[in-house]
Design a protein around this nucleic acid. Structure first.
Length: 502
DNA sequence: ACCCGAAGGACCC
DNA sequence: CTCCAGGGTCCTTCGTAA
């Protein structure tokens, strides 16, 4: 509408790199200008359109359901009271979040980077930025070229995951002394249950957290922020309150918890992203956690059971949503790559072949094989398609994977592509970690023999195909008898492989 | 009637 | 001028099948 807008850099401050936070609206304007007219921008617009349609549909549903509202309200009240009665206050969790982790590690090696705007990532996407860069509006998940428009002097450093892993390991070592079962979801975040530690130490949560952060700092030279609360979710939200290099302790008191949550925007809840936040706001004017509670009836009426339960429990500070299922097994392994737009099938196949090779390498490292091969295609217009086949037997070599992947590709070839990916799921492993329920009780399993029947398999150790065939038969005896269409197979794997060595 | 696989999305870091 | 990652998980919807 407003045609060319060439003056958006208008009152640009001097380039002394002084960290004076720039006006938010100005930042938005620059970002807007930078991305306007791009394919991505168009894609974004379409997405927003779809979400708007979704909201409109829900709006209609809402008016249709309005007659049953008061009855539903009774039930909701009961539900909420019931939930509240089950609130658990006895345990104490501590969530730790490293401050600008990747950037901080880089600064350790090159201290001069501390005072200049810097980000870690590639030209196309940044992983994180230091606090100087943030005053320019340069943040994680921002493409490098846009970041440069916001901050022409920005230094972009390619990520060095080996260094981050090493730094993370030092941190984890400290954390484990507070909770040996500590679960970390990523290199820079971890959730600990410090109930036992507190019981032993007789220090206050404040003191313990202070001490922990001090030890992390001494071990790694990195600062972190922490949150403490009676659920993992609350601890995580709390870790954001006094970031960076700070901590927040939320007492295990329902009143205090609700008061704290009251001010928190729903977006802070882990699991509520942009889309859900937008729908909640546009549909029900829900912005804060308190709003979720006051709109609880509509939420239960309009959203799925799982979704509404998640939202309400989260708003009460009782979300068990994440982190509890520590060390859950890997479900899939994949490789994907973005590149300059290509159109020819042959070009796509070349890329695909490389991806398959890479995937096979990764699989080999973990000795994984998988039954489902899927490919992911992203068109130049950013539309994403996935296609998959499930095989009779697990595969793991690049030839096997490519055979099926390329079939999927040629059968579904889009006119153009900007991204291609291969994924293997339905994972099984050669190592004797997966056991059938029946055989689970006895049998000390070892050696490159079959983990199930314990007999040696008549195949070379690296003939994974044949070994898997054998194991498969042992694991699912009935499935042999079923022709091929529907196997009544259950995946017991998820529950019975916890005994694996660490 | 149901389980399942496939495809599409939302989300997280 | 250059034009938005990659590796995962989980939830939902749909269709076909015995």
């Amino acid at each position: 509408m407003s045609g060319v807008n060439t003056t958006f850099l208008g009152g640009h401050a001097t380039k002394s790199g002084l960290p004076e936070a720039r006006d938010r609206t100005q930042i938005d304007k620059i970002i807007q200008e930078a991305s306007k007219g791009s394919k991505f921008y168009a894609f974004q617009q379409r997405r927003e359109q779809r979400i708007a349609e979704k909201v409109a549909a829900l709006q209609i549903k809402k008016t249709q359901l309005s007659t049953g509202y008061s009855k539903a309200e009774q039930e909701t009240r009961k539900w909420l009271a019931d939930a509240e009665s089950r609130r658990i206050l006895e345990r104490t969790y501590l969530h730790i979040d490293m401050d600008a982790f990747f950037a901080a590690v880089e600064v350790l090696r090159r201290p001069e980077l501390a005072t200049v705007p810097m980000a870690v990532g590639g030209e196309s996407m940044l992983s994180t930025s230091n606090y100087v860069a943030r005053t320019f509006g340069v943040v994680a998940a921002m493409p490098g070229y846009i970041a440069r428009k916001l901050c022409p002097h920005l230094i972009i450093i390619p990520p060095d995951y080996t260094a981050y892993r090493a730094a993370g390991a030092k941190v984890h070592e400290v954390l484990r002394s507070y909770d040996p079962n500590m679960s970390s979801f990523s290199l820079d975040e971890a959730s600990l249950d410090i109930t036992d530690y507190l019981a032993r130490s007789s220090a206050t949560p404040e003191e313990v957290t202070e001490e922990l952060r001090g030890r992390v700092l001494r071990a790694s030279n990195l600062t972190c922020s922490a949150g403490v609360g009676c659920s993992r979710q609350l601890a995580k939200i709390g870790s954001n309150v006094n970031k960076p290099n700070g901590q927040f302790i939320l007492p295990p008191d329902p009143e205090k918890i609700l008061e704290f949550l009251k001010k928190q925007p729903v977006k802070r809840i882990n699991g509520i992203g942009k889309v859900t936040a937008k729908i909640l706001e546009d549909l029900l004017k829900v912005v804060t956690c308190a709003d979720i509670i006051s709109q609880a009836t509509w939420i239960r009426l309009l959203f799925s059971e799982i979704q509404s339960e998640f939202l309400l429990l989260s708003a009460l500070g009782m979300g068990s949503a994440f982190g509890d299922g520590d060390g859950s097994e890997r479900k899939s392994m994949s490789v994907e790559r973005t590149f300059k737009k290509i159109d020819a099938l042959s070009d796509m196949q070349v890329v695909l072949k490389k991806l398959c090779k890479r995937l096979a390498e990764d699989l080999l490292e973990e000795e994984w094989a998988g039954k489902t091969v899927s490919i992911k295609m992203k068109t130049a217009a950013f539309d994403t398609l996935t296609r998959a086949v499930t095989l009779e037997n697990p595969v793991s070599t690049d030839e096997e994977i490519y055979k099926h992947a390329s079939k999927l590709l040629s059968k579904n070839k889009p006119p153009d592509l900007r991204l291609l990916g291969v994924r293997l799921s339905g994972l099984t492993t050669d190592a004797p970690r997966y056991r059938c329920l029946d055989d689970f009780a006895h049998e000390p399993v070892e050696r490159p023999s079959c983990p199930v029947c314990t007999q040696s398999i008549d195949a070379h150790p690296d003939d994974t195909l044949r070994i898997n065939e054998h194991i498969d038969k042992c694991l699912v005896p009935q499935s042999n008898l079923v022709p091929q269409s529907k196997k009544p197979r259950r995946t017991l794997d998820a529950f019975f492989n916890k005994s694996g060595p660490l």
